[in-house]
Structures are given as C-alpha cells and as structure tokens.
C-alpha cells in the first residue's frame, strides 16, 4: 500500500472507531454489530466471518470487549499502528463524555430531556442489534449446518435463560469446534 493511501486508511480507521465508540450504548456486544456494519458492510475491510472470529477473541481476552475488538480490527487493517489508532478512537469518546459529566453529574442524571433522548436511543440500539442478529443468524441457518445452528440455539438458551458464564460457553463451543475438525479429519484419513 502506498504511503498516501495508508494515511487515508488510518484517518478513516480513527474516525470510524471514534464514531462507533460514541454510539456504543449498553457496552460489550453492541459494538460488534456496529463494527460489522461499518467495517464489513460499508468499507469491506473485513468479511462477516472474520468479524465473528475477532469478536470471539475479543470476548475471551481480559478487559473491555469494545477495546479488545478495536485492537483486533485495527491490527487487521493496519498492523500495530492501526491497533494504536483504533484504541485511541475507541477510548476518546467515553473519556471526553465522562470527564464532562463528572463535573456536573447530578444535574445530568436528573435532566428530563437527556433521559428522554437516551430512552429513545435505547430502542434504536435494540433495533440495530436485532438487524445484525437477523443477518448473521440467517446466514448460519442458510448454511444448513445442523451443528452450527444447534450451537447457536443452545448457546443462546445457556447464556440468556440459564445465565451460564460467558467464558464457559466460549470454551465449550471452542472445544466442540476442535473435536469436530479432528473427527472430520480422521474420517477423511480413513477414507483414503
């Protein structure tokens, strides 16, 4: 990549992560749908499958999922410099917003208009997440891979209804994936 172009990429990376972070209400997983929309659907820097791989790694690492995911996306797009840029983009919005709020937080907390706007945004966030779940989940169902569909349903029930620890779910699904690969591999070897 030529120098001039890479500056443009870095700038776009910074602006994108800054924007996404400024709108990540509800923390954690909400950033994944937003990143998918931006980096996969809009900019085509990453495909859907890789976005989910990065999300899985972000979830299994210590620290905030949003920060971890931006490090991974930044690294994928422009190496270590990219990672540094996207950390900056992700951390700045909450840093600025909370710094300002902490100066007069009781006034903010009780302001009726602020809470009305935030309440309205909650519905918008829910709609964005629902939209991305339909896209990604629909793709998995369309692949007609019964094990994947089963993993998706069981993981949802385990996490949402039974309240099973997320790390346990990730670990179990990773093991299922590994065992399956070994099994399929073994069968192929046997067929030879």
């Amino acid at each position: 990549m030529e120098k001039k172009k890479s500056w443009k990429v870095l700038l776009q990376l910074f602006v994108s992560t800054f924007y996404i972070s400024a709108f990540t209400f509800g923390g954690g997983y909400v950033i994944i749908p937003l990143m998918k929309k931006k980096f996969a659907d809009e900019l085509h820097w990453i495909d859907d499958e890789e976005m989910l791989n990065l999300a899985a790694i972000a979830q299994s690492s210590p620290g905030a999922v949003a920060v971890n995911a931006s490090i991974l996306v930044g690294y994928r797009v422009a190496g270590v410099v990219g990672a540094a840029i996207s950390i900056l983009g992700t951390v700045l919005p909450p840093l600025i917003i909370i710094s300002v709020i902490s100066l007069f937080y009781t006034a903010f907390r009780t302001n009726a208009i602020v809470s009305a706007v935030l309440k309205g945004m909650q519905s918008g966030v829910a709609a964005v997440v629902a939209d991305v779940v339909c896209n990604l989940g629909g793709k998995i169902v369309k692949d007609r891979d019964i094990l994947s569909v089963l993993v998706m349903i069981v993981a949802f029930v385990a996490n949402y209804i039974l309240g099973v620890n997320v790390m346990l779910i990730i670990l179990a699904c990773g093991v299922i994936g590994a065992v399956r690969t070994l099994f399929v591999h073994g069968k192929k070897e046997g067929a030879k």
Binding site: G26, G28, Y29, V30, I32, P33, E49, L52, N53, A55, A56, Q59, V129, V132, V133, L136, G137, I140, S148, V149, V151, M152, I153, V154, A155, F156, N159, Y160, V166, I169, I170, C173, G174, V175, I176, G177, A178, R180
Partner: peptide, 13 residues
C-alpha cells in the same frame, strides 16, 4: 465453533 456462539451472545445482549 465459536462463530455461532458469538451470534447467540449478540442476540442475548
């Protein structure tokens, strides 16, 4: 194996 699980976690959120 992790990808469907991540979709489930996003759905759950």
């Amino acid at each position: 194996g992790l990808r469907p699980a991540v979709v489930a976690l996003i759905a759950s959120a």
